[in-house]
Design a protein around this nucleic acid. Structure first.
Length: 283
DNA sequence: ATAGGCACCTGGTGGC
DNA sequence: TGCCACCAGGTGCCTA
């Protein structure tokens, strides 16, 4: 679930119940996720007011009025559930899921916000707000794809020396922030670039279109994230998000969506991860 | 410095 | 029904 658009959707979903509100109590139900929680995390969070919720790459940052910022990463399977919201209700009705509520925030407005993460690849940390960007987990992250520092000249320059498949290069968070397996596959399909092409072999004329394509895909997915939350409310079960709009991801064996194209979507493994592409449209 | 592979964890699915 | 192999949205760390 959590690539940049999903994390942004989660961040927006948390704002009504968290931004400006005091965390009256934080329950920390285990000592760690991917790493041990910071010292006395529950005490340091409890009683704090959330000033704002930010996002950097796939991280959510909650600035507190204590001068500290709560850093949250959802890993592969992390969710944030809010009591009363469809997802929160869904988890609440399934005991097998509730057991993965590792950290629970009780807000002054009555909301119960839970960090739920079965695989526990997620993480939380507390850092000084003033130096948040210098945190080891954040400092090496590349430009935000929706920000001003990500542009054609940057991407051409960044890829010029990369002796690695373009698929792998775009997954490198130090090169560009926030892309994951799904959106890289989708971007390369729209750009007509074969995922195994060495990044440094791509001509600038092939790289330049990637910039607006990446931006468009992320923006569309964020937009769909918002609307699919409504779908979820009605359907009451499955996560919708952008998945109905995938053109290649998860579509191995399916017909290519390009009009006139008679090829079938293929799946290969790159760096131990599945890549989906159309062998005709991507070369 | 850079690229590749492994490890961390649980749950779902499909085949026998 | 049970068991097993394989798959999954991420990424830090170790190795060549």
């Amino acid at each position: 679930m959590p690539e940049l658009p999903e994390v942004e959707t989660v961040r927006r979903g948390l704002e009504p119940s968290m931004t400006g509100a005091v965390i009256t109590q934080a329950d920390v139900n285990r000592p760690d996720l991917r790493w041990p929680f910071p010292e006395l995390m529950a005490e340091r969070i409890s009683g704090a007011r959330v000033l704002q919720l930010r996002r950097r790459s796939k991280y959510i940052l909650a600035d507190l009025d204590t001068g500290e910022t709560l850093l949250i990463h959802l890993g592969m399977s992390g969710r944030m559930t809010v009591s009363g919201d469809p997802l929160g209700q869904f988890v609440h009705e399934h005991p097998a899921l509730i057991k993965h509520d590792h950290v629970v925030f009780h807000m002054e407005n009555g909301a119960r916000v839970a960090f739920n993460d079965p695989r526990r690849f997620g993480a939380m940390d507390l850092l000084d707000t003033g130096t948040a960007e210098a945190h080891p987990l954040l400092v090496k992250i590349g430009p935000e794809p929706l920000g001003n520092d990500f542009h054609e000249a940057y991407l051409v320059s960044a890829l010029k020396t990369k002796n690695t498949p373009i698929k792998t290069a775009l997954l490198d968070q130090s090169l560009i922030a926030g892309l994951g397996n799904i959106y890289v596959c989708e971007a390369l399909f729209r750009a007509g670039i074969h995922p195994a092409t060495k990044a440094k072999d791509l001509k600038p004329s092939a790289i330049v279109p990637l910039v607006p394509i990446i931006r468009d895909i992320l923006l569309e997915a964020i937009e769909a994230g918002g609307s699919s939350l409504k779908d979820f409310r009605q359907a009451g079960g499955e996560l919708g998000y952008f998945q109905h709009s995938f053109r290649v991801y998860g579509r191995e064996g399916g017909a290519c969506v390009t009009p006139e194209c008679t090829s079938v979507v293929e799946r290969i493994t790159q760096s131990g991860r599945s890549t989906f592409f159309c062998p005709s449209c991507q070369s």
